[in-house]
């Protein structure tokens, strides 16, 4: 697992500024959908945002720590035993997409907290965004990767959880094929007793 984490980190590290720009684009899309206007751009370890309209407002967000989650989640999906390659690749793509959405939420939350602190007109609900910020700071950094990993991989990782033994509700004749799938007659297999 440590080796996989190191390799994934090595692959992801050069892409982190691209990922940061993509987060800015996602946050910008959120504000466009919401009807208010902010432009986000990436620089160094920070993402900056600036309002389109009066009153002009500019601030910076530091999303550095959330990068850890991308290699973390990808490593979990990679090292989970019992997944076929095709399914694993689909899960990697799905995991990355879901994590991206959670990171956009992180960016929007940080932006809202800055706007609330600055008493910017049109800033969101104070109680909601403060709880979201506290949650993301305390648990969210690891909660979302773990949740996505569990949701994607749990049914296959723990086959017994998702596939409880099926109760046979019809009568099985002594000469019928055995429902256990052995290919033998029922009377020569599970029905022997």
């Amino acid at each position: 697992m440590a080796l996989a984490y190191g390799l994934v980190w090595g692959a992801f590290y050069p892409l982190r500024s691209t990922y940061q720009s993509a987060l800015g684009a996602g946050a910008e899309t959120y504000y466009r959908l919401e009807g208010s206007g902010f432009r986000f751009w990436s620089g160094g370890d920070n993402v900056y945002f600036r309002s389109y309209y009066e009153p002009i407002f500019e601030a910076q967000i530091e999303p550095r720590a959330i990068y850890t989650n991308v290699p973390f989640l990808l490593t979990l999906v990679l090292v989970t035993p019992g997944l076929a390659l095709r399914r694993r690749l689909i899960y990697l793509a799905a995991a990355l997409a879901l994590l991206y959405l959670s990171h956009v939420f992180f960016m929007v939350t940080k932006a809202e907290i800055i706007l609330i602190a600055a008493e910017y007109p049109g800033a969101g609900n104070q109680a909601f965004w403060h709880f979201a910020d506290n949650f993301l700071e305390v648990s969210g950094k690891t909660f979302f990767p773990i949740l996505i990993w569990l949701a994607l991989c749990l049914p296959y990782m723990l086959g017994s959880v998702d596939t409880p033994s099926v109760a046979v509700d019809r009568k099985v004749g002594r000469n019928d094929p055995c429902p256990c799938g052995s290919g033998k007659k029922y009377k020569q297999c599970c029905g022997r007793a």
Binding site: F131, N134, F135, V138, S139, F143, L147, L150, A151, L154, P155, V161, D162, P164
Partner: peptide, 18 residues
């Protein structure tokens, strides 16, 4: 489904603790 119930329970407990 057990997996869906598991994930829902997991989210609820984490949110409660937070």
């Amino acid at each position: 489904q057990p997996a869906v119930r598991f994930v829902a329970g997991f989210v609820v407990v984490v949110l409660l603790f937070n």
